[in-house]
Design a binder for these strands. Structure first.
Lengths: 352, 352
DNA sequence: TTGTATGCGTTATCAG
DNA sequence: CTGATAACGCATACAA
């Protein structure tokens, strides 16, 4: 048996009414007699009628769906963000359609094209690491598609953006390392084009400079694919630890980079923080449980998702004037944990 | 400016053709002259024409979307599964619409109702912890909606199911504890109704029995909401450790239960595995990095997602006879790690 | 108060 | 080879 659904026509036929009467009765229109309404409503209930959302979409030229493109769902930061997105979407009667770019420009473009060929009302996106050409986003934006960027944003496009204060997060993390006696601090970053890379590196450099430490470009390593491939991280970490002047600490500027370098260091039997200090961005559920106490920069991913969705829906339903786009900048949470050497395992949450 | 898309009509008007001609030219129909085709195709390309998927859905009575309902996206097991789902869906030209039940029966029902009122072609689902009444699934199934269960399945419904060998996983984990000298092994489980709970507890009990240990029902604690709320886990763990005959090890039969009890034990300053042994299901990205080495039962979530989607799409496109539904049972990966006490931190992956 | 006709974008059927 | 028209399910302007 095929999945056959009951339509307004079936009700009309069964009740000897016209489709328009049924339609109006169902929508509780004032111009329908109470009796007719009652009959229709009861029958509809009985045969379990539900309007066809696709027909509605076609008619109303809206799908009540929002698209989401992230690099990878199975990344705690993104899955937490999607959690927030789905929450708000659900409250507002929207569906969420998920796509993964896997950091690839091509996949991103394809998804973008498909989603926006009218099956979604708006789009929430975190740009892929490989993406260096933003023209497809620009064009989409110019064609009037409601768009909200989060995490990895494109500054040149004038719409809402939701990020954490990446500069400050990296600054504070670097300062923390310096204050704990580390001096030769290396940075592991994503693709240079990404907004998050630029902001985080700026914070890192500023902290070094403010503490009288010269920045050394050989201490900055980039991972083109955002650490999606462990080999990338392995190569970067290997280069760092086998350099003539080896860094005494690493600042990992991305989730995958943090867990990646932790894995690599472990494999190389390099102790953290005994042999090398490590602090990094991470939203993994269990990263706080990792010993030796790993200090981490955690993003309020869920809230970012919520805010982005809220803004997007306002944009879609044009509740807001489209003149004053802001960039919502949230505070990252820096979770500093005493090193194992101190035997003090208490956790100290420093929020600013 | 509103997001106005170009339709087949626009092309027809611009080129002085009929919509049907344009439609056929675009679909490369044999009955259209090469010249007309060329003109249409070029113009379509030029003005960036893309067919409206919603109109197509209405016409073809299919949306090329599959629905997914899980308890929580921000749970590594599910996000990894969704990763797999999205991969296969993408390859087959399907969209993925995500919903979260948050372990609630009501939310699950609402999502189910909405999704299946014809905006999806099929559904992949992991049942909510609170769900004890399966009639809505049964009805849906009877109405012919292609359905694939994964992880938390409903045995009474005859369709494809994708799970790991939960019995064996729990059996092996329990045996591992026994072989390491633990004798009073408690189990922390989800809702008793869930298939995974029943299978895992059966494996746990069988292992105890096979090793001459009597099962003790006071050693089995249930968390109605699947550990979604930490208080639940806290209460269960507290009851266990403050009992007269305290267990010397805990087997956590769910992701949230594993990380939850780890957190609680840490907060209570109960050392693992010094004071109490712990092994549990976990798919968290970083759970392998947790010290003291946490032994875990890991599910091949990504593959489960892939397989479920593959089966669902076959079902949707009726490539398979609907007579021989199987339950795909994959092997969980038991990751045994030597305890910190042994100072041997090498990892030993035991697959069966 | 109810019914008829039209359109949303597309494809299929039937004429020409 | 091409065009006109109906249909998918629904809402609505217009008639009655």
């Amino acid at each position: 048996m095929k999945f056959e659904a009951v339509t307004i026509k079936d009700i009309a036929k069964a009740l000897g009414l016209s489709t328009s009467t049924v339609s109006r009765a169902l929508r509780d229109s004032y111009e329908i007699s109470p009796e007719t309404k009652k009959v229709v409503l009861e029958y509809a209930e009985k045969i379990n009628y539900h309007p066809n959302p696709i027909a509605l979409s076609l008619k109303e030229r809206r799908s009540r769906s929002i698209g989401v493109i992230v690099s990878e769902i199975a990344n705690s930061f993104f899955s937490q963000a999607i959690d927030g997105i789905e929450s708000i979407a659900y409250k507002n009667g929207y569906n969420v359609i998920i796509s993964q770019s896997r950091e690839s420009f091509d996949r991103e473009s394809i998804h973008l094209q498909y989603l926006t060929s009218r099956s979604i009302d708006g789009l929430i996106i975190s740009v892929a690491a490989e993406t260096k050409d933003f023209s497809h986003f620009k064009e989409l934006h110019e064609r009037g598609m409601p768009l909200v960027f989060f995490d990895r944003i494109i500054n040149e496009i004038d719409t809402y953006k939701v990020i954490v204060d990446n500069y400050q997060g990296a600054y504070d993390a670097t300062r923390y390392l310096i204050e704990n006696g580390f001096k030769r601090i290396a940075a592991l970053a994503n693709n240079e084009i990404l907004s998050i890379t630029r902001d985080r590196l700026a914070g890192y450099k500023a902290a070094l400079t403010d503490h009288g430490i010269k920045t050394d470009d050989s201490f900055i390593k980039y991972c083109e694919h955002g650490g999606l491939r462990l080999e990338e991280v392995e190569q970067a970490v290997t280069e760092l630890v086998s350099a003539e002047t080896r860094p005494d600490a690493i600042l990992a500027l991305g989730d995958k980079l943090t867990t990646g370098s932790l894995r690599i260091l472990k494999a190389k039997k390099i102790e953290v923080p005994g042999d090398i200090g490590l602090i990094g961005f991470s939203n993994s559920e269990t990263s706080e449980l990792i010993e030796p106490p790993l200090s981490i920069i955690k993003q309020p991913a869920f809230e970012m998702g919520e805010i982005a969705t809220d803004l997007l829906i306002q944009l879609i339903e044009s509740k807001r004037p489209v003149t004053s786009f802001e960039t919502k900048k949230l505070a990252p949470q820096i979770i500093i944990r005493e090193s194992a050497k101190n035997k003090n395992k208490s956790m100290l949450n420093v929020e600013f």
